[in-house]
Amino acid sequence: MIELDGVAKFFGPTVAVENVSLNVAAGDFCVLLGPSGCGKSTVLRMVNAMIAPDRGRIVIGGVDIATLDPIKLRRGVGYCIQSVGLFPHWTVERNIAAVPRLLGWSRPRIAARMAEVVAAMQIDKALLPRYPRELSGGQQQRIGVARALAADPDIILMDEPFAALDPISRAALQDEMRRLHEVSGKTFLFVTHDINEALRLATRIVVMNKGRVAQAGTPADILMRPVDEFVRGFLGRDELPLRLLDLVEIRDRIAPLSHRPSTTAIGGNATLRAALNMMLDHHVSRLAVADETGRIVGEIGLADIVAGGAPQ
């Protein structure tokens, strides 16, 4: 869906992005992860044709974007930034409808789509006639996301959208994005410096360092096989093994039932972290594992969790 091929961008002497190639498949939730200044925003802005790359090609849906009208391209792609940037002189409703209006949709079509977006983002209808100034940060970013979704784009670009929010609003919006991704099948390219946010949302993670791609892969790939010290350090060297427990399900480590089964049971689709939690909670080192119907199908012991091995 989105392909970058040997893309580079220089600002005078600064190398912002150097030889970046990546491929985001349709329906991916791709997270660009890396420290501040590593070139994540520059990549995103190049995909949105707000900056032209100095080298390389960017292809969206099979078309080199250098051949497209940048204004048309941007109207067809959702874009959402950390500072939100709502129009302070427009009501919430008019803010959300900005792109459909630019596209010249008819009034009934805009109204119908507005109702959908407002419902999908769970926006309180009482906010619609209000002005952005009167909204909390979390509410503003909810409107910002709604504005990005309003014209029903296939691709949504988000640049650290939740970095400035309080933890509760952030978690709520992250859940919203996961749900949205699951039900819509849209392609997301999402920038963050927060490893937890990346693990929570991504189907694919691209770790960047100093303008280059340090590593790209599924969250499990990256957690289990960090390519170098930089990636290992960025993922949190000390907590890496613990984070991995979030990504592996119990059924991947299940062992046959022993002759003295545990009386405490857990579902096979829970994560290893949940299993470890339950063991600590019940002061046991083995748990029975149940399938969806509640039938005991095997067991898992502390040794199976510690043993490691790739998740599927």
Binding site: M50, I71, S83, G85, F87, P88, V99, R147
Partner: peptide, 23 residues
Amino acid sequence: VSADVKDAARGIGFDGRRLFFAV
């Protein structure tokens, strides 16, 4: 005029003329 607002406007597809007159 807030740089963030101008950036967001450009990013969602305002052309120069609309950016000036509407924002």
